[in-house]
Design a protein around this nucleic acid. Structure first.
Lengths: 195, 195, 195, 195
DNA sequence: CATGAATGAGCTTTCATTCAT
DNA sequence: TATGAATGAAAGCTCATTCAT
């Protein structure tokens, strides 16, 4: 009976979490079996349950992890410095993070409807993201760099501007040029499309 | 149990399809059992299978139905008439259609990864949507009403502008004011957000 | 609603029975659905049940029919006339009857284990067949034309001699030459195979 | 329910196969449910599927097992030694094997029409059996110990001689005296029944 | 602590039979 | 009487989870 080399429990936990993340990203929540995960780590089925209570819970943790990563790359704008380069940098980091091949599918396609807790977490994530965008817009309006607009609605539109290109690239397998994408996004923010 | 009265086959088929659509929208593909569907219509399990060969096939049909509805509301732009009102009208109809409470979840969350055929259909749907937007942008550029831009990337961003506000409204249960949303979208297209 | 032309009930019953027999022969009991039978007759599902109480019962009737046919072709031996030609004639008719393409499969493969009544009927059929052979053997022994032997055991062997060639022909799709087969059987009865 | 203790996988597999064989013999393929098999072993439904992919596959394996047993007991004739005792010994072993209560029903009644693979296997089994008998007859003719005859037809008759007594014994529940049966068969081969 | 065989609730699907029309 | 849509029990099978070793 080959026994996995005794590892530090925290390391082992992290290993399983990482493997789960990889598999969820590759196959989606429903097509992923515990078998896939334990095969990925190289442990026995039972071992998985020593570290996590259920498949749903690990999925929830993977979700949290991804949301935290996304949140972490967005830096507050320094209003004493030129705005556009800062926005560009944020967009650029955001796109790269989301595009990191696994985040996209898990966060935007698989996460809905797994269970109540995940749904809540996801809602909270979006709520925070939207709030940040709204605040940025509101601040911009006070500073006179953002035109008058319904910030709630506009924030949602802008969220779509950031999400969708990455989602589509994942769907059709296109390679993503983050710099160009961020640049186009910035142009859109700056002047729309009509002239 | 009371026997459901024999109905016109086409009507019954439509009934089941409509009920399936409702349940899929409410619970998602995986959490929906045939039991849920037949309970919704008030028929026996076997009756479902008189009209449809499998759960996946009904889901595919629901998907097709929704995609067709979305596609059908977008009218071509008449370039001899003023553009913005036409764009507004299209956005308005689009938003209303997607927001029809069930379309959103099924089309944007549940449809991914059910099976190869659904995936292909969905990809084709997005491909067509994006192509339409790209063509509109390209035409606009020729006419000088759209600024120079990478139309492929920009089309994806605009797709996000249309999808995301509706997705978010569905997620947090907000009532959607289609007119205002379309108006804000138009403003975004016309001038971005920065001034 | 096309209605099958009103027919004499007895005729209709016979029609359904005949169709059932054909389908059972073609597909076997378990692979035959009521749908197959009613399609073969050109009536509605419900009509079938106006004439027969269940699938099993029709199968039982088909079975009886076949058993009766088989029994009917075997003529008693006239001991005042030469024996071998009479035996030959009986064997010849028997083989032809069993080989009538449907009898074989239904009687020898499908009939076992459908239900208690069919099993009993089949057992009774075999019991009668064996008893006839045994009596013929016993009579032959009295007349000195049959060698001493355990008639019970020998009767079973002879039953196999008659059944198996037809069964095998059906299994491998070979065309059957009844005359030759009967002739060989007779030779076997007369002198075994060893010399 | 008490949890079945983990057993050596090969043993467990064999256990399930043996139980399946018993149940198939008792109830036939179609009346046997997975429930019956797992009840017979004393395991849960899922456990069955850890060892076998489907009901049909286990049935196929049972079939193979039985065919192999039957084939294995027939020894080639040594033509330098007296023939009849060797034939007797073969018949005796054959009868005992087929009569082992379960072989008969499964091999001769239930095996037909389950699926294409089983049908093919069965046909191949019979083809081989018949070929062996034919070759023995042909060899016997060359050696002058077998009378001239159509070996193909005669082989089929002889197959019936071996099968039918056992089939009938199983059908009517008679205890089988293998020695006597083999002896009678030998007599039949040696001199037919008429004198 | 690690293991993986065992579990069983629950799924989709089938089809002989019923009964309102 | 004939119809065929409706029925629902029961089948085979899956897989997240448990627990004796």
């Amino acid at each position: 009976m080959a026994r996995a080399s005794a590892t530090d429990p925290d390391t082992r936990r992290a290993e399983i979490l990482a493997a789960s993340r990889r598999v969820f990203a590759r196959k989606g929540y429903h097509r992923t079996g515990i078998s896939d995960i334990v095969a990925e780590v190289g442990i026995a089925r039972g071992t998985f349950y020593r570290y996590f209570d259920s498949k749903r819970i690990v999925f929830g943790l993977v979700l949290q992890q991804m949301m935290a990563e996304v949140v972490s790359v967005v830096q507050p704008i320094d209003i004493t410095a030129p705005i556009p380069p800062q926005v560009f940098a944020n967009l650029d980091r955001l796109v790269r993070t989301i595009a990191a091949e696994d985040v996209c599918r898990v966060l935007f396609s698989e996460a809905v409807g797994i269970d109540t807790k995940s749904d809540d977490a996801l809602r909270a994530f979006y709520a925070e993201a939207l709030q940040r965008i709204e605040q940025a817009l509101a601040l911009g309006q006070q500073l006179g760099v953002v035109r008058p607009a319904n910030v709630t609605v506009t924030a949602r539109c802008l969220l779509g501007v950031m999400k969708e290109p990455v989602v589509q690239a994942a769907l059709d397998g296109t390679e993503l040029d983050a710099d160009e994408l961020a640049a186009e996004m910035l142009l859109l923010l700056q002047g729309g499309v009509l002239q």
